[in-house]
Design a protein around this nucleic acid. Structure first.
Length: 614
DNA sequence: TGCCAGCGCGCG
DNA sequence: AAAGCGCGCGCTGGCA
């Protein structure tokens, strides 16, 4: 029996008490549903034991469980006491399948139903109207409707569509909506499955499906944060920000606190107070105060006030990030961010609620392993550049990688010989370091499909591309052949796409075919990372040692490893597994890693002799 | 008050 | 003819 399942919940943050209040299922013949009782004053949900048993029993009996975004609904089910551990092997996900058929489109259930099933109804609109009016009606009754600042969703911002968390106010409309959703999910899977097989995508679907349980476990484990350090950090920054704003207001002689995020305030400072002439305008013609304009005005005026504004802005950005992490923190002092498998239009994952993939370099020190663990923090060395070199097929480029030499350094030598020589001797020289940074940027621009003009600009040298093309023949041909693949697929299969290494199809906008180079590289790297995570997860020692992947940032992985006598062996195996993910293309991929310790951990002192060297 | 677009900025 | 890619999130400011 193929069973489609959906849950409706009181919110998305299951780590702060949000819960499902309705479970719906469809087996193709019949629909089923179970209600939990929402306490309108607390938003807590009460479930009858026999209903949980009934849900568990039907889940256990089904041959196939179909979800649209399995991670979410499995989490919801787990929070009300469903045992999900044995279910993963029979889970299918229409979200994963949809991404294979159309990596660039929306994967919303409603859109998919229209596109593939010609199934349209206005259940969503009806529900929205009902919920919005119900929220107004019950606000006088003292009900705990969802809103900014709620204890069950401390991380969500003002800009959230809060009404979506109050479906429980409208049981009739909600049930109709939820049953439509499971029907759509069931029908979609029955359409997708044969298509996956027929189009030759079954294998790559199976590969990606293994990520479901793995990403779920990453979210469950969470990333441990130093709560106290974070609090102190925010308090400290807040004080600084206040001081700076007061100072600016005083200098400018304005009443309300100066706000560097307000265009008006910035313009007042620039043109009224500092009397700098208007040098930049927006496309609409009004004076501009965007990043580039402000930076140039500072270079032009060298005004200490403007410098203060730039510093204040930077500090405020930092505070905003730390505050958000703090708000999302659960009782276990961990961030349980989602790791979204279909989060990007290539095969990379995205992270959300909060985003763990853009934690500022300065803020990483606020995160550290919990007592009894270390973090193995590993990186693929230059994975994207490596994929590019092999795709171009240039022997010199490839052998440079195989000899472990720095391609960036080589290109710097090619373009700026004397500076490169000097930089090799003196890595601390800031001017030379900036030159190296620009060269690196230029090469990335090049492999991501920039025009020659743009790449030359980034390199900081006219004709840079021509020099590189001449030295490494094959680059232009590679770009051309990949673009040809897009057009020939469009012609033959009516779908413009490129295959990544590993055979995953990625859509390329037909009016922007130059993007295919980027998609191929990012997508192939995404497949390698997927394989690495799967290999690590399947290591026997990973399980027996109690290790757990806690973070993935595209080309890097953090694994939380218990401090015990297996630690050396575990790390050796982790490294081996990760480096083997692309052997079919370029042998072992070099991995660089470091071990991160919690300095306050007492077990470090006892077990210091078994630890890897600092 | 809620919603959306535009922008900036963190990461790869 | 011209084009460097991919994310998530917080804030402002305009609109209903």
């Amino acid at each position: 029996m193929i069973l489609a399942i959906d849950t409706e919940t009181t919110g998305i943050d299951f780590f702060h008490g949000c819960r499902p209040f309705l479970v719906t299922m469809c087996d193709g013949e019949e629909n089923y549903h179970w209600w939990g009782e929402v306490n309108p004053y607390t938003r807590e949900v009460f479930w009858q034991e026999e209903d949980i048993d009934a849900i568990q029993s039907i889940l256990n009996q089904a041959d196939t469980l179909v979800f649209h975004n399995a991670q979410f609904d499995m989490r919801a089910l787990e929070t009300i006491g469903i045992n999900i551990e044995s279910l993963w092997d029979k889970v299918e996900d229409t979200l994963l399948a949809s991404h294979i058929f159309c990596s660039g489109d929306s994967h919303g259930l409603k859109d998919l139903a229209i596109k593939y099933l010609h199934y349209w109804n206005d259940d969503e609109e009806q529900l929205e109207i009902a919920v919005k009016s119900a929220r107004q009606r019950v606000s006088k009754l003292g009900y705990k409707i969802a809103k900014y600042g709620d204890s069950q969703s401390p991380g969500l911002t003002k800009a959230t569509s809060w009404w979506k968390q109050d479906y429980w106010l409208c049981p009739d409309e909600c049930l109709y909506y939820a049953l439509c959703d499971v029907e759509k999910t069931w029908l979609l899977w029955n359409a997708f499955k044969p298509a996956l097989v027929q189009d030759g995508f079954w294998k790559v679907y199976q590969l990606r499906k293994q990520l479901l349980e793995i990403c779920y476990s990453v979210t469950s484990a969470g990333l441990h944060m130093d709560r106290q350090a974070a609090t102190e950090y925010v308090t400290n920054l807040e004080a600084k920000i206040k001081k700076i704003r007061k100072y600016l207001s005083k200098q400018l002689k304005i009443k309300p606190l100066f706000n560097w995020n307000k265009r008006e305030h910035l313009l007042y400072l620039l043109h009224n107070h500092l009397k700098i002439p208007v040098l930049y305008t927006t496309p609409g013609g009004s004076p501009s105060a965007d990043k580039k304009a402000v930076a140039d005005y500072y270079a032009y005026s060298n005004s200490p006030l403007l410098r203060t504004v730039l510093i204040g802005r930077r500090i405020e950005t930092e505070r905003r990030y730390v505050q958000a992490y703090y708000n999302w923190l659960a009782d276990d002092s961990c961030l349980h961010s989602n790791l979204n498998i279909t989060g990007t239009r290539e095969t990379r994952q995205s992270s959300s609620n909060p985003n763990q993939q853009n934690i500022g370099k300065k803020l990483t020190k606020l995160f550290l392993p919990p007592q009894g663990y270390v973090w193995w923090d590993a990186d693929f060395a230059n994975i994207e550049l490596r994929i590019w070199a092999y795709a171009v097929g240039n022997k010199d480029l490839i052998s440079m990688f195989e000899r472990g030499e720095s391609v960036h350094m080589f290109i710097m030598t090619l373009l700026f010989p004397s500076e490169a020589a000097a930089y090799k001797k003196d890595h601390k020289n800031q001017v030379l370091a900036n030159r190296y940074r620009d060269v690196k940027g230029g090469t990335f621009a090049l492999i991501y499909g920039a025009t020659e003009k743009k790449a030359d600009e980034t390199y900081g040298k006219a004709g840079a591309c021509q020099i590189i093309f001449k030295y490494f023949p094959g680059i232009a041909e590679y770009t051309q052949s990949l673009t040809n693949q897009v057009f020939s697929n469009f012609y033959d299969l009516k779908r413009p796409f490129v295959y990544t290494i590993g055979g995953y199809p990625l859509d390329v906008p037909i009016d922007e075919p130059f993007k295919c180079c980027n998609y191929y590289i990012q997508g192939s790297a995404g497949i390698f990372m997927s394989k690495a995570m799967i290999a690590i997860h399947n290591l026997p020692i990973y399980k027996t040692s109690g290790s757990q992947i806690v973070q993935q940032v595209h080309d890097s992985l953090k694994v939380q490893v218990p401090i015990n006598k297996y630690i050396h062996d575990t790390i050796e195996r982790l490294k081996e597994a990760m480096s083997m993910c692309a052997t079919d293309i370029f042998g072992k991929t070099p991995i660089s890693y470091e071990i991160l310790y919690n300095p306050k951990d007492e077990s470090l002192l006892q077990d210091i002799d078994i630890l890897p060297p600092f």
